[in-house]
Design a protein around this nucleic acid. Structure first.
Lengths: 255, 255
DNA sequence: GAATAATGTTCTGAATAGTGGAACAACTGC
DNA sequence: GCAGTTGTTCCACTATTCAGAACATTATTC
């Protein structure tokens, strides 16, 4: 494996994660690699435009990473058309609304609208979570080509007492999800957080994305989740319509 | 220089730019490097999580690039607080509004609101333009630490007949910008596109970002630009206030 | 359905390119 | 001015990457 490339990406990630610029020695120490090595990697990244150095000769990420990342996200065009239905859903429910897509066996949050209430479910845009124990994740998994194949590659972790522990459990839940049209999660990923989610289906019945509503478990007893479900399903349907889904894949033209 | 790292990034960029997944040979041909080389670079990128392969064993960018990029953009937090004043400005002017930050000697568009009119200035979010010949760019340049030093590193290109050709011209215009509080551009970057922009200043009087209004030159005679200027300046001031600027740098905490 | 083309993958030896360590330079704080 | 940082350069070694060809697998054509 190209270790140079891996190290270079590691340097980039360290810088991306940092709030403040970093020096050569600091990065070298963080990654456990030599100073001279780190120095040259940084110079290469500067030459490539991903990193720049400030006046104090310290290094920080340029916006190039974001620029390239945006090119990728642009194709996951659902986010744009989903915005309006999401706002409506947020107003109707007063809970946090989020939009996710599947990336491997994880969900990535493309967009969210925070609940106005002081106590709320906190998700981060561009954040990640395992698909098999979140509401949006399960909504997505239920409509992929081969859920079993995907789940076979999962490493099962116990995040809470309620986290599902094997593929069989999740698979049976997924058929339930397909039957009723929405997915639930009650404290399976983060303790005390519950949610409902519905898939946004494209041509061929494959899931492109999922919308979900989430909040503190105390505000989300089973009865409320059942009441929220149709609203989430309706929002997902609205997004599907607005997107004019019909393309063969998730990839759609630029805005 | 670490060529492996550069090649790896080049592969990543090719994939990020493509609408559809690509195969090994195709990428190899595009970059002019060997097949086996490309193959291993791709495997490394897959291992690092930046690329994944679809069912047809073709390669595409995962959302990891976007995720990391977002971590960077998150710190350029102006975008979030700027949204509301930008919407107001867009409604008042009916032209395209955009928000830019400086990245080296280029501007990067963080956000934009399209004009409702059929003929409009077209900028792309996460797009780039040279700073010295755009309105937002000049607004930003006027308030950096050392404009002359920055301009010294510029390679002067003639994009249109009106593109400034040397540092002296731009520097004198920048002092004008500082004096009156806003910057103008009339077809210096793209023919037939004109705009006004105002800087968003942080603690210490340094520019953090700039808001601009742009449109087709026919709709933007000097008189209209002068009338738009105070509105743009007001929007910039509103954003400055909303952001509660006071930190020492652009870096602000996460949303 | 066989033959052919095209693409993805693995292998190998050769050598280049990257590595770590130390030496040097430029600051910073005492 | 001196110790203690941190950034940068140099150099010899060897591990890593590279190209090309061989092999495997899939697509295409007849």
């Amino acid at each position: 494996m190209d270790t140079t490339l891996l190290k270079g990406l590691a340097v980039l990630e360290v810088l991306a994660a940092r709030e403040t610029p970093a020096g050569v020695s600091e990065i070298a120490g963080l990654l456990g690699i030599g100073k001279s090595n780190t120095h040259r990697l940084l110079q290469t990244l500067v030459a490539a435009g991903y990193v720049r150095r400030d006046a104090d000769r310290r290094y920080a990420c340029s916006l190039r990473l974001w620029e390239k990342g945006w090119d990728v996200a642009r194709r996951y065009d659902v986010a744009r058309v989903a915005r309006a239905p999401m706002v409506a859903l947020a107003q109707d429910t007063a809970e946090t609304v989020n939009l996710s897509v599947l990336d491997g066996d994880e969900v990535v949050y493309l967009d969210k609208i925070d609940s106005p209430l002081p106590v709320r479910a906190d998700t981060r845009i561009a954040g990640r979570a395992p698909a098999y124990c979140t509401a949006t994740g399960k909504a997505l998994l239920a409509h992929v080509e081969d859920p079993a194949a995907l789940l076979a590659r999962v490493t099962w972790e116990r995040f809470t007492a309620r986290t599902p522990r094997d593929a069989a459990t999740v698979l049976s839940e997924l058929s339930e999800v397909r039957r009723r049209g929405y997915a639930l999660s009650r404290g399976e990923w983060r303790d005390g957080v519950a949610g409902v989610a519905a898939p946004i289906l494209g041509a061929g019945g494959r899931s492109l994305a999922a919308v979900g509503v989430g909040g503190p478990a105390e505000r989300m007893p089973p009865a409320r989740l059942r009441r929220l479900a149709p609203m989430v399903v309706a929002a997902a349907a609205a997004i599907t319509r607005a997107a004019g889904m019909g393309g063969p894949t998730l990839a759609r033209s630029a805005p």
